[in-house]
Computed example of a mutant assay.
Amino acid sequence: MKLELQVKDIISKSILTPAKGALEGFSHSLNPYAGCAFGCKYCYVRQLPVSLYREEEWGTWVDIKTNAAALLRKELIKARKKGPVTLFMSSSTDPYQPIEFKTKLTRSLLEVMLEDLPDFLFVQARSPLVKRDVDLFKQFGNRIRVSMTIETDKEEIRKAFSPSAPPIPARMKAIQEITEAGIPTQATIAPLLPCSKEFPKKLKQIANRVVLDDFWMGDGSRGKRTEKLEIRKIYERMGMEKWYNPHAYKVVLKMLQEELGHVELLVSQKGFQPGEQ
């Protein structure tokens, strides 16, 4: 039985967080919300303080940083004095939470950025709602990349690992529309989940590039965080244990290399870096 989502407004002390670890190529990460309604079972944020020190279960709560736009306007000015401003939105939530349809909080942040354009903005989402802001994305020119998480092409797999996340076909359609609007995009297989042999062909036409990542490269602890989440048991229940190993990505990588042709293909951290300044 799914628990009711708890949504509340909060006043945040800051909105730009100095980037580190896998995001060290960026100057800051930007999270309009805390928590996430999608509650993916494999999410590494489950093992971070923002989740561990919260009474509610991850996936059952979302905090809306209502003063985010005002903070961003001030913090962009300060950040620019220290050097290039390259933003990753978002690292511990999806900037296009279902509540974003109503709050338009992320959209307000994009509008602030267009007043004082950052050197680069990387938008990471798994919600088709992201296509709503194509009109704003266009105004960033080549200073933006919109990335859509597409971990598999199989809906039954998606439902096993992230039942509350948007359907895969809707994500694919959304990122294709953004690509066709002339905005730099990528389809992000992160983390790689069991998929079909047709997966690379499906990705070929929908984004400018494809990025492949897995638990061992991408969870920030060489797979230890994922192991604590007992993701292995889901694979075992589905009879797909062979997919749960640090070498499985190589098979899919070879399939992608053979199919993608002119579409750029990157692996893990290289796919999450700012564009050319």
Rank of each mutant, 00 (worst) to 15 (best):
M238P: 01
K8A: 09
K2S: 10
P169V: 03
F122H: 14
G275Q: 08
E56L: 12
M238Q: 08
P194K: 04
G223F: 10
I231F: 01
E75H: 05
V134M: 11
L52D: 12
E24N: 03
E156F: 02
I150M: 00
K197E: 15
W216I: 13
E180P: 03
R107I: 04
R143M: 15
W61L: 03
T17H: 13
K74P: 01
L105T: 08
T86A: 12
Q269T: 12
M217V: 01
Q205Y: 15
M238H: 00
V50D: 05
T103I: 03
G25W: 11
Q139T: 05
G21M: 10
L16Y: 02
E227C: 09
L30W: 15
F137P: 05
L105G: 06
L212W: 14
L30N: 13
L192Q: 14
L260Q: 04
I15R: 04
V85H: 13
K202T: 12
V134D: 01
E156P: 00
G35R: 14
I175Q: 02
R225I: 08
Y249P: 05
E264F: 09
E180S: 12
L192E: 07
E56Y: 09
E198Y: 08
S92A: 15
E151F: 02
E227A: 15
D213P: 11
F101K: 14
M238D: 01
D133M: 10
P246N: 10
N208S: 15
F122L: 15
E75C: 03
C40A: 00
Q269M: 07
S162F: 08
D94W: 03
I234N: 02
P32A: 09
G261V: 08
P274Q: 02
V50Y: 00
Y53S: 06
S14V: 04
K20E: 13
I234G: 01
